[in-house]
């Protein structure tokens, strides 16, 4: 169980590194949104699943903590794409230009 937890957490950290590099290297706001919206959700969900695995090995009343972490996962899973839409829409309405190949 602990090995599974470590595998999940390190996979999540690798995906988070990819998200960060994408956030730093992409040329415009819209494509940065791609990296943020996807990598953020997946890496957080993976790391929290690993936390559930660690918690459930400790015994006692810890299944309640596992359920609470599952509730956090639920909120992130619903909230993160919705926040991404809201920010994309704000950028579109505020007039951010999409990046083209010949614009640089």
């Amino acid at each position: 169980m602990e090995i599974l937890a470590y595998i999940l957490i390190s996979t999540g950290l690798i995906f988070f590194l990819g998200t960060t590099i994408g956030l730093l290297r992409f040329p415009d706001f819209y494509s940065r949104m791609h990296a943020a919206g996807k990598g953020d959700t997946l890496s957080t969900v993976l790391i929290l699943l690993g936390c559930i695995c660690i918690v459930s090995t400790q015994g006692g009343m810890n299944w309640l903590l596992g359920l609470k972490i599952l509730l956090i996962i639920n909120f992130i899973f619903i909230g993160s794409p919705t926040a991404t839409h809201a920010m994309m829409d704000a950028g579109k309405k505020a007039g951010a230009e999409p990046w083209r190949k010949d614009s640089k």
């Binding site: 706001f29 940065r32 972490i69 926040a83």
Partner: peptide, 21 residues
């Protein structure tokens, strides 16, 4: 732009949940 900072702040906030756990 401001929106870039907003995206970065969102990512930092999500990561701080993980850090709290």
């Amino acid at each position: 732009t401001v929106i870039d900072r907003l995206v970065a702040i969102n990512v930092i906030g999500t990561k701080s949940i993980v850090l709290l756990l």
